[in-house]
Design a protein around this nucleic acid. Structure first.
Length: 287
DNA sequence: CACCAGGCGCACA
DNA sequence: TGTGCGCATGGT
């Protein structure tokens, strides 16, 4: 199937560190698993070419929603282009789009991301899927869906925590956060479901995530809201972004709360896009 | 061998 | 309300 798209860079969107389950194979084809579907996709100029397995009833809608093709990037660039730092960041990562992930997978992925490195995050999530997800075969390769809360709740703490060379997922101290989150959901211990957060204002959803789940703090909550709950005002403040904002914008040391207040005010309701373009340029901007 | 990683919970003031 | 410390494991 083919789909025309404007202001979109597939490689940048998949490679920038917001999603963890995509791999680049031959002829520029990316393979990934989105919910229960394997997706094979590549970009040729302004056109993307893709295929799903199993076949999905409305593939164009599925792909458009995932890559947020309804976001008007021209308008968003205009809104966040407050200075030369951001203009350069946009130029260097032009076409990068926030991806709309599954809330549950996103939550677990960013619980795992804390105090961790991207290659290891990917390896942990891949191992988690292999051990507890459902297998699918396509193009002669075996893929695994991200485990549901039910599937993940059957794991024991030890095999989540321990290292790869001991048959574990190498989650370390984060294992208890992952398992307790799965148990909270399958035991119906919460008086809301994750999808409900999409219909809440940003502030209340941000607080509710941190109050409900152990291991979710300000940064992880923002990642969940930005990458899976359509909250484009969320501004995940990690070590890289902290350095960039303190060095290039505030030029003095203030606490995280002050940084968040500044970024929210300065970048506005598309602050999440601003964050993603700064993060994408982090190596360049932190020198 | 040190040291640190897309932070967070907890103990203290 | 605000600050400092330890954390499991893997990578450099």
């Amino acid at each position: 199937m083919k789909l025309n798209c404007q202001i979109f860079d597939l490689n940048r969107s998949l490679y920038c560190g917001q999603v963890f389950r995509w791999t680049l194979e031959y002829d520029q084809w990316w393979y990934g698993v989105i919910q229960g579907y394997i997706v094979k996709i590549r970009q040729l100029k302004d056109e993307i070419e893709f295929e799903t397995f199993p076949k999905i009833s409305n593939p164009y809608k599925f792909i458009s929603k995932y890559f947020r093709f309804d976001d008007n990037l021209n308008y968003i660039y205009n809104q966040i282009s407050k200075d030369t730092v951001m203009k350069d960041a946009i130029r260097n990562a032009f076409g990068l789009r926030i991806i709309c992930q599954d809330p549950w997978e996103c939550m677990i992925s960013y619980l795992i991301s804390q105090q961790n490195q991207i290659p290891k995050i990917k390896r942990s999530i891949e191992t988690l899927s292999q051990k507890f997800g459902t297998s699918l075969t396509f193009d002669g390769k075996i893929f695994y869906t991200f485990p549901t809360p039910e599937q993940l709740s059957k794991a024991n703490l030890n095999e989540l925590q321990k290292g790869f060379n001991q048959g574990g997922c190498a989650l370390g101290y984060r294992a208890k956060y992952v398992l307790s989150s799965a148990l909270l959901i399958i035991n119906n211990s919460l008086n809301f479901c994750l999808e409900d957060l999409k219909n809440m204002p940003y502030d209340s959803a941000w607080k509710l995530l941190q109050d409900s789940f152990c291991g979710i703090g300000p940064k992880v909550a923002d990642c969940i809201l930005l990458f899976s709950m359509d909250k484009l005002e969320a501004f995940p403040l990690d070590t890289w972004i902290r350095k960039i904002i303190l060095n290039l914008y505030l030029k003095k040391t203030v606490n995280d709360q002050k940084i968040r207040e500044f970024c929210s005010e300065y970048f506005g309701k598309f602050a999440g896009y601003a964050q993603e373009y700064l993060y994408s340029n982090r190596i360049h901007l932190c020198q």
